[in-house]
Nucleic acid binder design. Structure first.
Lengths: 184, 184
DNA sequence: GTCTATAATACGATAGAC
DNA sequence: GTCTATCGTATTATAGAC
């Protein structure tokens, strides 16, 4: 597990988040990670798709851990979930609205044109939904509704992040947090 | 107002919806709209960005009209809004999950890198939010909450559409419709 | 094994023929 | 005015020097 390999993946994660798949060239990834071009195909023989697939998997685990942390911070999901959205709003604002929705752009670009990357994104979304769902189940929510709310919460996070980045204003994320308090 | 010009815009709208900005080349737009390359720069002297800007504006108006129609279909927003999401689910499924979220991909790609297109997307989102907000105001919702819910509804539509397309399953959109009934 | 130089291709944009 | 052929520059991927 080379450090340079990790650096390439980390850089890829960042660029996927801010620009998406097609807008990000391998040259840019290499320039920002400080790696030469040949080493990319040494570490990632499948080329761009293999690299991005790993980057998505990496992001999936990072966010999954952050979600678990956020859910564990409060016993009541009606506190834990809205506060997670608020911490997310902080993160988006601190990045100058360049971060947020770490795989959303890729998910949409790949949805109809690249089944390999689409599968990676789908796996990430389902994992994240499951964290929310489990928190709700542990707090006594009924099975069907817990799953439904798990899906909805991830959808709201995605959608509100898009609006916040587009408007350069964390209002949508904070609004969503408030309404989730009413719903949960 | 040439018919061929409109055809180029219509094709661009479709491709932006399914693939996004960077994945869509001018060659593909021309091939699918049946126009030769030279005419593109005749009709759109600003090049790709000018064309896509117009396409976003066109989409904005299409969706705005569809939203108004949906809101007018029921007096109670607690019926109108969830049913709009259900009709959207139909639309997404009928397209084989290739349509849905007509400007989402572009919005994310442009958010941090192309202020011109970002502005066009922001304008569209705000227009759509306003339609929901107005419907809620007309039904007696308080000013602040109407605006907050307008934002949330658009966010939910965006997020649930992403999940539905990624999972190739309209479940997320239908789940969101159900929970919105509980919230409104 | 690690990297540089280069190939093959697609891109957006333009010049110039009709 | 309408379009075809081409330009310069990106892209991804690879071949081959160290």
């Amino acid at each position: 597990m080379s450090t340079k390999r990790d650096q390439i993946i980390t850089t890829t994660c960042q660029l996927m988040e801010t620009q998406g798949y097609h807008a990000t060239g391998l040259n840019q990834i290499l320039a920002e990670s400080g790696a030469p071009k040949g080493s990319l195909y040494h570490y990632f023989p499948d080329g761009k798709d293999g690299l991005v697939e790993e980057a998505i998997a990496h992001t999936r685990q990072t966010i999954e851990a952050r979600l678990r942390e956020g859910m564990a911070a409060y016993e009541n999901p009606a506190q834990a979930i809205p506060n997670f959205l608020r911490s997310l709003a902080h993160h988006v604002q601190a990045s100058g609205f360049e971060s947020g929705g770490p795989i959303t752009a890729v998910a949409l670009e790949a949805a109809s044109t690249n089944e390999r990357l689409n599968a990676a994104c789908r796996a990430a979304y389902q994992a994240w939904q499951k964290v929310i769902e489990q928190k709700l189940l542990d707090s006594g929510y009924e099975t069907v509704r817990a799953r439904r709310l798990g899906t909805l919460v991830i959808a709201i996070i995605e959608g509100a992040t898009i609006l916040s980045r587009s408007e350069r204003n964390v209002g949508p994320l904070l609004d969503a947090a408030l309404e989730l308090e009413a719903l949960l």
